[in-house]
Simulated assay, not measured.
Amino acid sequence: MSFDLPRNVILPVDAIDVRLDPGPHPFALSNAEAIAENWRQEMATNPALFDGTVVLLSGLAYRDGRLVGRCHAVNYSTFMLWRKRRENSGAEHAYAHAMLVAGDNALVAIRMGSHTVNAGRVYFAAGSFEPIDFRDGMVDVDFNMIREVGEETGLDLSQAERGQRYHALSTASGTVIFRRYRVAETADELARRISAFVAAEAEPEIEGPIIIRNATDLPDGLMPHMKPLIEWHFGGTVS
């Protein structure tokens, strides 16, 4: 399976069939020494990093409104080297965003903590897919979204109103799968709850909440993939 999907355009997605291959990713096998050396350098710069398990794609395609793909569990150290060598690597990254929509239609994002790889960057609370996010070998995207939002912000989105479908945006840096999650509280109320959660955490992942009230309200540190998602939301798309 190759990577065969339109780039730099928001795609409607009705189903996601991304499966976990039990075998090793070819990138991990062919770069073992470089992965170990790069990890030593990364740890010297940021000792707070943890070499946990994430997944990396070996194929992804868009067919008739469906995302179909294959991925492999890899160490985070493998992912870190891949970030530097992604071009022509035979691997790509996919991740999910719960687009948190407040009762006043503002979006609530987060700014990452200073000890993280994406320190200071702004995006919706999210994290890479992990083996725990798979059911019978297939990724459960909503489980990942709800889990990551809960871990980073303390909010429980399990009862939130979900958008009718997913959407996806694929760029050179990866593919983000996103879905609206609507709650009744205002953005200010959500921000207060998130700030209180962060203040109570011994080692919070995030610096705090960021409210985005319109398509031109773009905060410093915004990740590049976020701008088209924000424009899409405030452009009136209802799904």
Rank of each mutant, 00 (worst) to 15 (best):
M226N: 08
V9T: 15
R179A: 08
A172F: 04
I211F: 01
R40H: 12
F27W: 04
S2K: 13
M138F: 01
I132D: 14
Q159D: 12
V101M: 04
E42S: 03
V176L: 08
A34V: 08
G113R: 01
E207M: 01
T216I: 11
F27H: 03
S30L: 09
R193D: 06
Q164F: 00
F134M: 06
A15L: 07
P209N: 03
R179T: 12
R85K: 14
L29S: 09
G65N: 08
T153Y: 02
A196Q: 11
V141M: 11
A91M: 05
P131G: 06
L60Q: 08
L169T: 10
E152D: 11
A125P: 01
G137K: 08
M223W: 00
H97Q: 06
M1A: 12
G154H: 04
F234Q: 10
I206A: 05
N214D: 14
I211A: 00
T78A: 08
E161L: 08
S77E: 07
H225C: 03
A126T: 15
A98D: 09
F197K: 06
L20K: 02
D21I: 10
P131Y: 08
L157G: 08
V74H: 03
E203T: 14
Y95S: 14
I177M: 14
C71H: 02
P131S: 04
S77Q: 03
L222H: 06
R192C: 02
E87L: 13
V176C: 09
G208F: 04
G137F: 11
N144W: 02
R180E: 14
E148A: 07
S158L: 05
P131Q: 07
I194W: 02
V9Q: 14
D217Q: 12
I132C: 05
R7Y: 14
E189T: 14
T116W: 00
A36H: 04
V176Q: 05
R162E: 13
A184W: 00
